[in-house]
């Protein structure tokens, strides 16, 4: 059987990669993709913990289901915002969104 720490290290790596995507990418959609990677890392954590530490109750399962649900809602609103802004600006580059300074 695979040890628990393997899953946790995998999740940590995925989380760090997602974080890099969030912080380094210029395009808003690419940033959203980084966020999705981070959320997936969390889901691996939740289910690995469920499998190895708290098998009796399905807390990890339920938590992961809610995370996925929220991710879907979040992506829907996010994409709507990107499209609305793209209509005004012809860009969704985070650095070009600079109507406000100070």
């Amino acid at each position: 059987m695979v040890p628990l720490t393997w899953y946790l290290v995998l999740a940590a790596a995925l989380f760090a990669i997602g974080m890099f995507g969030v912080l380094a990418r210029k395009n808003a959609v690419a940033v959203l993709m980084g966020v999705e990677l981070m959320l997936n890392a969390v889901n691996i954590n939740l289910l690995a913990f469920w499998r190895y530490t708290a098998l009796g109750e399905l807390v990890g399962h339920a938590f992961a289901v809610f995370v996925i649900t929220v991710a879907a809602a979040e992506a829907a609103v996010g994409v709507a915002l990107f499209i609305a802004v793209y209509r005004q600006r012809d860009t969704v580059n985070v650095e070009e969104l600079d109507a406000m300074k100070g």
Binding site: F15, G18, M19, V22, A28, V31, L32, G34, V35, M38, L39, A41, V42, N45, V67, E74, V77, G78, L81, F82, A84, V85, Q88, R89, V92, V94, L97, A99, M100
Partner: peptide
């Protein structure tokens, strides 16, 4: 400005909630 405000709020918020979730 409104669209930009929302996108910034959204990107920061989505990231912050993912970190909190971890």
């Amino acid at each position: 400005k409104s669209g930009e405000a929302a996108i910034k709020y959204f990107l920061y918020g989505a990231t912050a909630s993912a970190v909190m979730l971890y």
